[in-house]
C-alpha cells in the first residue's frame, strides 16, 4: 500500500517535471522567435546610433522623432497617402472576394448541373497552378487595356472568385450544413437566392469572417503585384513606400525611421490579429489554408 502511494507520488512528480520542461521549452522558443519584433518596437524610439550599439529592448530615452520624420518621408507624400492607397486596394478586394466566393461556393455545393464534376475539378486544379506562369500575359492584358498604373489589375480578379482556397473552404463548410434547411425554405416559397441570403448566410458568417481576415492580410502583404503594376509614387501602397525608404539615393538609410514606419505598417495586421486571433487560428485549421 505504502509502496503504491510512493509510486503514485513518483508518477505525479514526473508529470509535473514533464509539463515544467514543456513550458520552459515552449516559452524559450516563443521568446527567441518574438524577440526580434519586440526589440524592433523598442528600437523605433532609439537614435540611429543607439540602434547599432545596444541589444537591449528598452531605449535609453523615448524619442518620437523617428515616427514623425519617417511619416513625412523623403518624398512629397506622407504615409497618410500610402495608407489611404493601401486601403483603396485592400477594402474592395476583401468585399469582392467575400461576395464572389460565396456565390461560387453556393453554386458548387447546392446545385447539380451538367459538367459540374469537371468544373469542380478545374477549380481544384487552379489551387495548384503557380501564379508565376500567368503573370506575364496578365500584365500584357492590362497593358492593352491601358490599365497599368491603376488599381484595376490588383482588384479585378477578386470580382471573379479567383481565390480557389476560399471557394474550396466555403464549399466544404456548406456541405456540412444539412439540406433540410433549404427544403423547408423552398416550401415556404423562397427562391434559391433568398435561401442563400436568409438561411445560409447567417450560418456561414464565421467562415466568411475568416475569408475576409485572410484576404485582408494577404492583400496588405502583397508586394509583387503593386511592384509590377503601380509606377507613380502618388499611387504607391505602403508595401512599395517602405521599399522606397531603404532604397534612398543618398546611400545612408535612416534605420530608426525605417523601423518606425515598418512597425506602423504592421499595425493594421497586428490589431486585426489580436482582436480576432481565435477566428484566424480556427479558420486556418478548418480550411487547411496556406499561410
Amino acid at each position: 500500500m505504502q509502496q503504491a502511494t510512493a509510486m503514485n507520488n513518483q508518477i505525479k512528480w514526473r508529470r509535473r517535471l514533464n509539463s515544467g520542461v514543456r513550458y520552459v521549452l515552449l516559452t524559450a522558443v516563443a521568446l527567441i522567435m518574438l524577440y526580434p519584433i519586440l526589440w524592433l518596437f523598442g528600437a523605433s524610439f532609439k537614435s540611429n546610433a543607439e540602434i547599432f550599439s545596444s541589444i537591449s529592448f528598452w531605449p535609453k530615452s523615448f524619442d518620437f522623432t523617428p515616427y514623425v520624420k519617417g511619416w513625412r518621408t523623403g518624398t512629397e507624400f506622407t504615409f497618410t497617402t500610402y495608407f489611404i492607397n493601401t486601403f483603396k486596394i485592400v477594402i474592395p478586394k476583401v468585399v469582392f472576394t467575400v461576395v464572389s466566393c460565396t456565390l461560387t461556393a453556393y453554386g458548387f455545393a447546392r446545385f447539380d448541373f451538367p459538367g459540374k464534376k469537371i468544373l469542380f475539378g478545374l477549380m481544384l486544379s487552379t489551387l495548384f497552378l503557380p501564379a508565376v506562369v500567368t503573370r506575364i500575359p496578365l500584365y500584357l492584358f492590362w497593358r492593352n487595356f491601358g490599365m497599368l498604373d491603376s488599381y484595376v489589375p490588383l482588384i479585378a480578379n477578386t470580382v471573379f472568385a479567383a481565390e480557389p482556397f476560399f471557394v474550396f473552404m466555403l464549399v466544404q463548410f456548406l456541405r456540412s450544413v444539412p439540406r433540410d434547411y433549404d427544403e423547408a425554405a423552398t416550401i415556404d416559397g423562397c427562391n434559391s437566392f433568398q435561401i442563400l441570403i436568409k438561411i445560409l448566410l447567417p450560418i456561414l458568417k464565421p467562415s466568411l469572417v475568416s475569408v475576409a481576415l485572410f484576404q485582408f492580410i494577404w492583400s496588405i502583404n502583397d508586394f509583387l503585384s503593386p511592384l509590377i503594376y503601380i509606377s507613380s509614387v502618388q499611387k504607391y501602397p505602403i508595401a512599395i513606400a517602405l521599399k522606397m525608404a531603404i532604397d534612398t539615393s543618398s546611400g545612408v538609410v535612416a534605420w530608426n525611421q525605417v523601423i518606425a514606419m515598418s512597425l506602423i505598417s504592421l499595425l493594421p495586421s497586428i490589431i486585426l490579429f489580436f482582436t480576432t486571433s481565435k477566428q484566424f487560428v480556427e479558420g486556418m485549421a478548418t480550411g487547411g489554408i496556406k499561410g
Binding site: 458548387f108 448541373f113 451538367p114 468544373l119 492584358f141 479567383a162
Partner: peptide, 23 residues
Amino acid sequence: KYQGLLYLTPWLIGLLVFTIYPF
C-alpha cells in the same frame, strides 16, 4: 437545372480570362 451555373458565372468568366487565357 442551370440555376447552379448562374451562380458560377462570375467564377467561370474569371477562369477563362484570368487563368486559362494567360496560361
